[in-house]
Nucleic acid binder design. Structure first.
Length: 297
DNA sequence: AATTCGGGGCG
DNA sequence: CGCCCAGAATT
C-alpha cells in the first residue's frame, strides 16, 4: 500500500531534470553557443514533425548557405525548397523563406525577440515562438512540445500519453512548473524536452534511466495504458500527400520545367487526383507554371 | 474540434 | 506494417 499522498516538490523535480540535462543532454548542432536566433528558428521549423537525425545534415547545409535572414531572402524560393530535400512538409521551406523576407522588411534583418512578432511569422505557432524565445534569447517561455507534454502527463498527471490536443489546463500546469528566473526557465524547457525525447519516450520509456522516476506518478501507478495506441493511423499509400510528394520530388530533381501530366512516375495516379494535387501545389506556391503543361518549383 | 500537410525508420 | 517524430494553418 502506497504511503498517503505526500506533497510533491515540483521545484526539486525541475531542478533534478535541469541537472540531469547538464550531464546527459545531447550536443546537437543548434545547441552550440555560437548559434544565432536565426539558426534556432530554422532548426525549430525543421524539427516540426521531423526527427532530429534527419534534420541535422539539412540544417547544417542551410545555415552554412544562408547564415542570416537576409541571405535566405536573397535566394529564390525554389532554392529553399530544393535545399529542403526530403524533410517533408515542404510548405515549411516556403514559409521559412517568407520568414526571411518579413524579418528583413519589418525587423531590420534580426529575428524579433517578442512573442507577438514571432507569432506573426508564417509557420511560427505557439510552440515555435516559445522555443525561439527560450533557446535563442534565454527568456521564460512555456515550451510545450510533444515531449514536454508527455513528461508532464506521466510524471505529474499519471497519464500514459498527453491528449491529442493541447488544452488550457495543460498550459496552466506547465506555467506553474516553469521557474520564475528566465535562465532557469529556459534550462527547464530544453531539459524537459530532452527527457521526453531520449528517456520518457512514447513507446518504450526508459524509466530506469529517468532522474525523476522516484517522483513519477505514472510509474508509481505501474505505467498503465502503455500498450494501447490512442492515435488514429494516418493512411499513406495513394493519399494526396503521397502524390503531392511525388510531384514535388520530380520538380526538385529537375532544373528544367517538367511535364507532369502523363509522366511515367505518375502513371498510377487517377486524373481526378492528379488535377487536385497539382492545383493544391500551385495554390501553395510550391509549384508554378513554366509554360503550357510544364511546371517548376 | 477536426483535417490537412511528408517522409523515413524503427519495433 | 503500424506508429512516431521539437506543429501549424485552415475549416
Amino acid at each position: 500500500m502506497p504511503p498517503p499522498s505526500q506533497p510533491r516538490d515540483d521545484a526539486a523535480m525541475v531542478a533534478t531534470v535541469v541537472s540531469w540535462f547538464a550531464v546527459e543532454g545531447r550536443e546537437l548542432p543548434w545547441r552550440a553557443d555560437v548559434v544565432t536566433p536565426w539558426g534556432i528558428l530554422v532548426s525549430e521549423v525543421m524539427l516540426q514533425q521531423t526527427p532530429v537525425a534527419r534534420v541535422e545534415p539539412v540544417w547544417r547545409e542551410w545555415i552554412t548557405r544562408w547564415p542570416t535572414p537576409a541571405s535566405l531572402a536573397s535566394a529564390t524560393q525554389a532554392d529553399a525548397v530544393r535545399a529542403w530535400g526530403r524533410l517533408g512538409y515542404p510548405r515549411r521551406a516556403a514559409r521559412l523563406w517568407e520568414c526571411a523576407h518579413t524579418i528583413v522588411a519589418q525587423w531590420d534583418g534580426q529575428v524579433p525577440r517578442d512573442p507577438q512578432a514571432l507569432r506573426m511569422l508564417p509557420g511560427v505557432g505557439e510552440y515555435t515562438a516559445a522555443a525561439v524565445l527560450a533557446f535563442a534569447f534565454g527568456e521564460r517561455a512555456i515550451v510545450l512540445d510533444t515531449n514536454v507534454r508527455r513528461v508532464i502527463a506521466r510524471a505529474w498527471n499519471a497519464e500514459p500519453l498527453p491528449r491529442p490536443h493541447l488544452v488550457a489546463a495543460e498550459r496552466a500546469v506547465a506555467d506553474a512548473l516553469a521557474p520564475t528566473d528566465p535562465t532557469m526557465a529556459a534550462r527547464w524547457a530544453v531539459a524537459s524536452m530532452e527527457l521526453g525525447a531520449v528517456v520518457c519516450t512514447a513507446r518504450a520509456p526508459q524509466c530506469t534511466a529517468c532522474p525523476i522516476a522516484h517522483a513519477c506518478r505514472w510509474l508509481a501507478d505501474g505505467r498503465p495504458g502503455l500498450a494501447q495506441a490512442p492515435r488514429r493511423s494516418q493512411a499513406w499509400n495513394g493519399t494526396d500527400r503521397q502524390v503531392r510528394g511525388r510531384m514535388l520530388a520530380l520538380l526538385r530533381e529537375s532544373h528544367d520545367p517538367v511535364r507532369l501530366r502523363g509522366h511515367r512516375a505518375l502513371a498510377d495516379v487517377e486524373p481526378e487526383q492528379f488535377d487536385r494535387c497539382l492545383a493544391s501545389l500551385l495554390a501553395d506556391g510550391l509549384a508554378s507554371v513554366a509554360a503550357e503543361e510544364t511546371f517548376t518549383l
